[in-house]
Structure formats: C-alpha cells, structure tokens
Design a binder for these strands. Structure first.
Lengths: 201, 201, 201, 201
DNA sequence: AATGAATGAGCCTTCATTCAT
DNA sequence: TATGAATGAAGGCTCATTCAT
C-alpha cells in the first residue's frame, strides 16, 4: 500500500505519532500543521489533516492523552508488586521510570511552549503529571508513609528527575555537566535514605 | 544625572524590562515586537526597537544575561557567609532563593517556549541555571562535601523546587494539589537530613 | 409507490430542498457542500452529493429552476381569471403574491451572494424574475394597457415590493422603519390609482 | 513618486477606492484581501493592507460610510431648494439621483453577498439607504404630504429604481428587457401623478 | 532616535472536487 | 449509491524585519 494510496486507514495514528515527536522537538506553537502533514504522508498545506482532527489543539490533546494512558499503564504495572525490600523496589521503579522516560523523553519537552493552549489540554497535562508522581506515591504509601508525606516525596522525586531531563532537552547540556547516570544513582540513594529515615520515626 | 532625568535615554532598558515580563507572561514566541514597542513607549509596528537591538533573539539574550547577573549577585552575596551551623545556613539560603524566585519567578516561565532560539541564547540560559545550582553547591562544598556530591545535591535541590514552580505556572494547578509552603518545608527538612547523613560518613 | 416509500430514492430531491433553504438562509457562497450533505442524510465531506450533481452551481441552477416553475405555476393560475373589476383583481393578485413570497421568501435572499456564478444560472434567475413581473403584466394587459406600459408597471410593482423584502432580510430593519403591512396597503392603492389613470386616457 | 515608494501616503484612500469597486463588482465575500492589495499597489498576500485597516469588514464599513456621506451630501444639496412647481422638482431630483447612481452604481451591488458581516456594517448600510429614501421624503414633505405618506412614497420610489439597477448589475440583463430610460421616464410620470392625486385630496 | 510604510514568509483553516472502494 | 481519504487552491491574518525619511 503506497503512501499516496487513498485507502490508507492509519493516517490518524501517523498524525498522532508525528505530532508527538514534532511537538517535543520544536514545541507546540513552532510546529505547523503543514509539517505534520508532510511527515504523515499528506500534501503539506492541503489541510488533509483536518479530516482526522478538527483543530491543532485537538491533536495535542490526543497526544497528551495517549501519553497519559501509557503513564497510567506503567503505574498500574508497578503498583502493588512490591518485594518487601524497599530499597530494591525503589531502585527497580527508578530504573523502570528512567527507561520509560528515555523512550518517551520527547513528551517532557512538550511542557514548554504551550501558550494559547485550551484549558482542557492544560488539565490533561496536569493530570498526566499527577499520575507520574503517583508511581512514587504508590510505593511510599505501600511502605507506611502517610498520604501527605508520600505525595511530597513523589513530587520531589519525579520533579528532580524531570528537571534534569528537561534541562538537557532544552539547553542541550546537562546541569553542571553532570552525567545522567551519576545523577540517577545519587538520587536513588537519597530516596532510600529518606525512606529509611521516615520509617525509623 | 538627576533623579528626574532617570526616565530619559533609557529606552533600551525599558525594552529589556518590558520584554522580560512579556516573555515570562506570554512566552517568547507569543510576544510580538510590536507589543514590546508599545509597552516601551515606541510606536508599535514601526520597528523603532531595531535602533537598540538587531533581532528579537538578541533581546532575549540580554534579558537572560541580566537575569544571570542577578543570580550571580545573589550567589556571591550568599557565598562564604556561613554561620557554621549547616542547618541554619541551609534554611536561610532556601528562604533567600524562594524570595528571589518569587520576585523573579517570571524568568522561570521563559524557559518554556524557546524553540527556534539561537544556540548562543541556549548556552546563556544553561549558564544561568548552573549559577542557580551553584548557590547550593557553594554551601555544600563549604561544609565538606566533595565537589561532585555537592553538584548532585545542588541540581537535585533547585530542580525539584523549580519543577514545582514551573508546573504551577504552566498547568494552573500545583502537583498533586500540594501547597507550596508544605512542599518547601518538606524539602528543607530533607535537604538538612541529607547533609547530615553525608557529613556523618 | 406507497406513502412510506416516499422517503426512499429521493436523495436528489432532498438535496435540492435543503440547498434551497441553505442558500436562502446563509447565501450561496456561504453554504458548503458538506452542510448540504449533512442535511440531506449523506456523510458530510464525502462527496456523496456528486452522485447527483456535477457541481455546486448545478444545484443552484436546479434550485432556481424549480422556483421558476412555481412562479410560472402561480402566473398561470392567476392569468385570465379576472373578474372585470380591475381594482378587485389587483388586490387579489397582490395578496396572492405576498402569500407566495412569504412562503418562499427565502428565494429572494438568494439573489444576493451569487458572485462567481455561471452565466447559465444568471440567465435562469433573470428569467425567473421576468415571470414574476409577468404576473402583473398579464393583469395590466388584460385590462387594456399596451404591452410596454404593462411591462413598466409590472417591473415597478414587483421591484418596489421585493426591494422592501430584501432590505428587511439583509439589513435586519425595514426601510425607514415602516411597517410591512402599511407599505403593502399603500402600494396597492397606488397601483389601482395608476391603472385607473391609464385606463381613463 | 513611484508605486513602490515607501513614502506614499495615500495608500489608505486607494484601498478604499479599490475595495469599493471590487466589492461592487464581485461582492464582499468574493473579494480577497490579496486582490485589494494588488490593485492598491501593495504586494498581494503580504498583509500590507493591515497597516491601514484592522480587518476586512473595517474596510467595508469605511466604504459604506463614505458612500453614506456622499448620499447625505446629495440630500442636503437637493433639500429645500424647491421651485414651487412639484413636477419640475420631481423630474430634477430624479435626474440628479440617476446621475448619482450612475456614477456610483457600484455601491448598489454591494448589497448582495454580505453574509457574515458585523452588525455595525449592517446598520451603516441600512442608514445609508434611509438617507437615500430621504431625498424623496424631503421633497414630498415640502409639498404637503404628511410624514408617513412621504416615507411610503420615498421607499417606493427609490426601491423601484434601485431594483432595476440591481437587477441589471446582477443578472446582466434589464427586467423584461426594458430600456433604462423608458423605465425612468415612466416612473417619473407615475410619481408626479401620485403627488397630484394626493395633493388634490 | 524614531516612525510610517511595506514585505515575505508563514500560519491555521475551509472547501469544492476527485478517486478508489 | 455512498463513503473515507486526499488534494489544491485559496482565504484572512500575523509578524519579524527592512527601508526611507
């Protein structure tokens, strides 16, 4: 089936995929409909995309929603599967999250350049982050933290990691030229430390 | 120059100031030259701004540079003025930084929406962050951390805080609906904890 | 064909009917093929309409032609059925025409917004008007006017009435805020007056 | 001063003039900004027009307003300058109006194709018409008609004339292929007749 | 130093129409 | 007969930038 075949029925998916990477690479406002069309096998500027989406922001919403689904999928996969050894679990989860963020790291970059975005999308992005934090919250709660403390630690944890990734993606350098791996290692240790400290109280 | 002369011949400064707040409020790409001109007392759309800057990104560079200077100023002010009580110092610095970020919180928002920006500016922004992290690095180093550990802790600390602020500014909600103050309190406690732990080794 | 079959195989008719009211309500150029399709039970944007018409202007032609047929029908119904009392006949015809224009007043609105229309359609519309004027021409001729005078009076009569209706439809106000009924009353009296005057010569 | 000279300062006027004739020739919605720009010596599609007008409908408003001013000018010129001989005055005014409409007949055509026009413009057009009718109202009032009757006669008179002109401009043929002059002659006679009739009451 | 005017490139979107199924 | 997909052309509008004054 050639790219110009009018029978293609996966165009919508291709639009979502290409939009996701374009939004991440260049930002939402700097990505033009034409460019999405070109990458998706449609004639740029011909508006073929509008058969599949009614507006540019609707694409963003879909992109965010799909990312959200994957985050929730990861969260569910990790939740309640703990070993009893909090250190081991924390390390495992950290690795899983890093792997996830590596393959999907584009999505983090979307968070910049969202001026003029409808409130619906803003909410969707906020919700997505909340499920991201939730991965840590689940863990911390399972090991006896109270709800509030678990939330605070979760936001702290994912916030620091994503800041690192975001910095790298945006400014084309790591913070203080630190290596990504050493940052993750360090953060892992700190997290364990905090958990033990809290547990001992 | 008398006090009443201060408003004269300062078009360039006004452009920088107004650009800073516009970039922060609406994002770099969503801020038009015309709008900067209007706020700066120039006829919008007449290009009067180009007497002072050769391009829009040059303004951004200047805005970032001035912010950088202020960050460096804060860093120098705080550096080497430690009390000997690490806990007290950490709390003090955290408060100073929060105060600074509150009055300048706009600048954090600039970090989104900077696609299509020249590498020169990217570097300037990266450098600015590095001096931000440096405030904590200085502290940690002064109390005996080795350089690498201090850097890691610095990036961790500022990263987590700025993620929180950025999330709020962009998505119009706090992460997991946590209060800003409880987040800061918690983070302060954790930082002290980590410092002591490291020191005790 | 039974009563319940009436709704079948009449897509073409539905297209014409819906087009007529859409053209009238929103104007020809502001009515999209998609919209006609949606109202006519076809999937909008799928071009199903092109099974029945080769182009948008062909629909307009058909719409105009059907309107023309109805006008001719009215003309034939009224023609040659005169009472001998010219005043009574004139009043009767005026009322019939007003009634007709009320139920079909949409069509008058089509006469705006027809730019870019093929000459064929222009001619059809012109012909339609001519049969409209003809209703009065028939009457005036029957009572002894010469052909030219009857034509002039006919154009005068219908022209003034349709101007009023058109003004109201377009500018959402009546000319000089006159009431429609008083305008019609007045115009009826004038027409009679002119007829008598001519007859008396 | 060449067409490409950036010092030109009559561009706004040229835009208005060219818009007036384009709107009349092709209708408002069928006239593109690019086309107005091309005719006005601006590069089509470059948006140079937007230095002079903030939107397309603002141009239309200006075009209508200027036409309105000229109508009011004519009305004032003709008003209160009557000879005492109603027949002579009516003929004179009719001729003046025909002359005016001939040189400005484009404007009548604007009245079609105005879908999507802001209410402000609709009102302006309605007002313009009202001052057109007013030319006759002034006359009729001066010769003793009561206000209401004068209004009715005024709308009747201008309505019939403009319908004729409009029909010609739109459908490229005269109603019933009547000559314009004979229509005007006839209408002049009828008007006089009506006036006398009313006066004799 | 500032301004009015113009420009070129681009943007999101609409839509009549075509084509393969 | 009807549909999903695609396309080309256009449309109104924005904006960084240039240029002559």
């Amino acid at each position: 089936m050639s790219l110009t075949d009018r029978r293609r029925n996966d165009t919508k998916d291709r639009i979502i995929d290409n939009s996701a990477s374009l939004f991440a690479t260049k930002g939402y406002n700097n990505t033009s409909i034409s460019e999405i069309e070109r990458l998706s096998g449609l004639k740029p500027g011909s508006g073929g995309l509008y058969r599949h989406f009614t507006s540019k922001s609707e694409i963003l919403l879909e992109v965010v929603n799909q990312y959200h689904l994957r985050i929730v999928g990861l969260r569910n996969k990790l939740k309640g599967n703990y070993s009893g050894d909090i250190e081991a679990d924390a390390k495992f989860i950290l690795n899983e999250l890093i792997t996830f963020m590596s393959s999907e790291h584009n999505m983090l970059a979307i968070t910049g350049d969202t001026n003029g975005i409808p409130g619906l999308v803003r909410t969707a992005i906020s919700d997505t982050w909340n499920d991201g934090y939730g991965i840590f919250v689940d863990l911390f709660c399972a090991y006896g933290f109270d709800d509030e403390a678990a939330k605070l630690a979760g936001v702290l944890t994912l916030g620091a990691i994503s800041h690192f990734v975001f910095h790298l993606a945006n400014w084309h350098a790591t913070p203080l030229e630190l290596g990504f791996n050493s940052f993750i290692d360090y953060w892992g240790k700190q997290a364990i430390l905090l958990l033990n400290e809290f547990n001992s109280k």
